[in-house]
Design a protein around this nucleic acid. Structure first.
Lengths: 265, 265
DNA sequence: CTTTGACTCTCCCCCAGGGGCGGGCTTCAG
DNA sequence: CTGAAGCCCGCCCCTGGGGGAGAGTCAAAG
């Protein structure tokens, strides 16, 4: 006869768990002292405990375990239960993998942004590769971009493969009736209410802008000045790559937003 | 202003959850009617609720969510938390995959046994392939096999690749000082206190025996009679492949045990 | 025989809600 | 204005134990 502490060490079940299993009728002690209430277990109980441990390791609920202990003599009786468990397991694994994927993306994005902050904020010429995107073009206010981004993000979901790019087709600044196209880079074609297209590549004058979108004008000025000084010619549409803006979770501080201005040459 | 039911439909959070989040200070209603206690929410609350939903979808605890809602303005503040979550996720995925693997093995085993039961119970000649095993050979009682099997099973763990094979080196039946070798088939070499070796293949006279191990004698008799009638010669050691016996979980009914007797020719 | 330290007992709170009960509140139709 | 339907409130129990409090018990040493 073992007291509960010894039995706990034998079986690997905690004292708490053993008391609970007693209460639930899953693993009853061989003998309970009436006066002190002390539980005493048997060698035979230990082998029954092994079954409980195994079932618990398979994420069975206590009521399932009780049922098994009471009615199942042979492992073939478990097949039904285990098959159901198996399905639930697969679903759970898929769910967790999905979460893991999303978290990974957020972390990587932040890591890239941190690196980018340490780099320069000067105008330079860059070659941009073509990129598959889903996009939505409309005429309206810049403020509307937020909602469009949310919808595109929802549609692209797991295929998102880069930063959002905003295209501006106006040759002058317009507050409420700008001709805007929001593009969400994707890794492969996606079924959605928005068209898939390829954003063409080319040579761009680029500048990293730090701060709220409202102050983008100053940086645009620097880019255009630089282009003129270098004797080149700017064309349309200009692009804004949002490296850090309102994220999928939190708004963030606009003073830390990072936007890459790209003016095609 | 939306009442809790409407807000629940907007956010996708249950009414129960919303009440809990109020109590925990995670998502407080804009206004609570003093008289009726009714909660009323705002459009702005809905966007805060989106954050809660996202964090909840990432399996964050309520205290983590509360912390995020209170102190995190930017997603970079989440990186630490998310990195920890990521690790926990990987561990959990590994755990579940492991369980899934074990369950699969049990189910497949039962399926095979079910199929085997429908097949014949006659003596026949079979070619057996060599098999890598860990094994333990000793002289003692048959009853001791149970414990040995448990230990071997624990050592081989995920590499188990077939049924247990018992080898009997005696040319006569011995109760308490039999020369027994228990073999656990494995798919690749395993570090364990028991030696890895290859169980050689060859030609065997085989018979499927159904029932408790105690009645194996009758089936042995049938095999030896058959061998003699066919003009062949039996050698040692005889083998017993336990297709269904006391399982890793439950003992099962001995009357349903299936043991394949293999006598080398 | 007593002390002492280790052990055990029951009881209560905690997680993150789900289910359900009894009783107030709102709102719309009659 | 009133009834009825639907909505909402708080409250309690359930999961599978972990943590801890306060009190009783066991066993070995002095």
């Amino acid at each position: 006869m073992y007291n509960i502490g010894t039995f706990s060490r034998i079986t690997g079940l905690t004292v708490k768990a053993l008391r609970l299993y007693h209460e639930r009728g899953i693993l009853e002690p061989r003998y309970v002292d009436e006066k002190s209430g002390y539980r005493y277990y048997n060698r035979e109980d230990a082998s029954r405990a092994r079954v409980v441990v195994a079932l618990k390791a398979m994420d069975c609920s206590l009521s399932e375990i009780r049922h098994v202990m009471a009615y199942c003599a042979d492992e073939s009786d478990l097949v039904g239960l285990l098959a159901i468990k198996q399905e639930a397991l697969q679903a759970e694994i898929a769910r967790l993998s999905n979460i893991s994927f999303v978290i990974d993306r957020i972390i990587n994005r932040e890591r890239e942004v941190t690196k980018m902050k340490e780099e320069g904020f000067d105008v330079e010429v860059k070659r941009v590769e073509p990129q598959l995107v889903i996009s939505h073009r409309w005429t309206g206010a810049w403020m509307e971009i937020g909602d469009v981004v949310l919808k595109l993000r929802g549609a692209a979901e797991k295929e998102i493969s880069g930063r959002i790019v905003n295209l501006c087709y106006n040759d002058e600044y317009r507050e409420l009736d700008a001709d805007i196209e929001v593009c969400m880079p994707i890794s492969k074609t996606v079924e959605s209410p928005w068209p898939c297209r390829t954003l063409e590549g080319g040579e761009f004058a680029v500048l990293l802008h730090r701060g709220p979108f409202e102050t983008l004008g100053e940086s645009y000025l620097r880019v255009f000045d630089w282009i003129e000084a270098s004797g080149r010619k700017a064309t349309l549409p200009t692009r804004q790559v949002v490296h850090k803006g309102p994220g999928p979770l939190l708004e963030g501080d606009p003073n830390n937003y990072l936007t890459e201005i790209q003016v095609p040459l």
